[in-house]
Design a protein around this nucleic acid. Structure first.
Lengths: 149, 149
DNA sequence: CTCCGTGCAAAGGCTTTGCACACTC
DNA sequence: GAGTGTGCAAAGCCTTTGCACGGAG
């Protein structure tokens, strides 16, 4: 694998799209960020990575949308704001999203395998694990909220 | 259980809030609708239930938010639009949300029990099943989309 | 050279909020 | 009677879109 042409770029070119400087930078930023990121966070990350990077926020919106369409990113909708996450390499991984502190610990795909299979058999429904976020409360927040407000 | 004072009303009163005609009607509409409903759909349902019901859309927003806070409803964020679902009675049930046609077939809670337990044991994470929506493709849409665009 | 992608800025849709009045308790 | 909830309407926020220019192929 060539360092200057990661798989993601190949994928983009293969789809008939063009590799622009903006897309390269957004891809880098997306890969760099752990967990979910809002469009604006990615935009900020791009600026942080390269202060001389002139980019419009709308470009980030469009690019993220494109990447999601191509499966290189996955999107989530959390309370009116859409977040994205890199999904180009390795297996899809899933997050537990804590309603309290917002942390997103990962869980192994194996934990979900049974569920997916069951659903597929019983309903003929093909689960898209990439879009799966499981909400709840992490260990830390559980302790704190023994006494809910 | 009194017909005129369902548990949901008791809950509302118990929290120190007032039972207004608007809340009653929104509750009814919410209970009546299957699956997820947008704020506007619930608003429309209220109007349908009682044509003489004067109500502002903002009231529906506020009420739905309140009900969610109290656990009588659960909310989902699907692509910029928030949807709600009644969650006051019976066990929490979960939906498969088809990315294709938008249908939301239910799945039995038992299918998730193992997953929940596993996550709890491995991560100390308390899964909130009420907020769980599993996305993917239903049987019908799978057939149609054998050839993705 | 051709055409896609970008920047800029305005429009758009959903949701929230301030204020005065009505209604619940 | 006291205070919450509502209606109305405007403001707010995130996101999308139109247009002309610039860069990729």
């Amino acid at each position: 694998m060539t360092q200057d042409s990661p798989a993601s770029e190949q994928t983009i070119r293969a789809s008939g799209r063009r590799m622009t400087m903006q897309r390269v930078k957004i891809l880098e930023a997306l890969k760099r960020r752990p967990g979910h990121s809002t469009t604006e966070q990615i935009y900020a990350q791009v600026c942080a990575d390269d202060a001389s990077a002139e980019m419009a926020l709308s470009t980030v919106y469009r690019t993220l949308d494109t990447l999601t369409e191509m499966g290189l990113a996955v999107s989530f909708s959390d309370g009116g704001v859409t977040t994205y996450e890199w999904a180009g390499d390795d297996e899809p991984h899933h997050h537990l999203v804590c309603n309290g502190c917002g942390t997103t610990p990962e869980i192994a795909i194996s934990a979900l395998a049974d569920l997916v299979e069951t659903i597929e058999q019983q309903h003929g429904f093909a689960v898209d694990l990439r879009h799966m976020a499981i909400r709840g409360q992490c260990a830390g927040c559980r302790e704190k909220s023994e006494a809910p407000r």
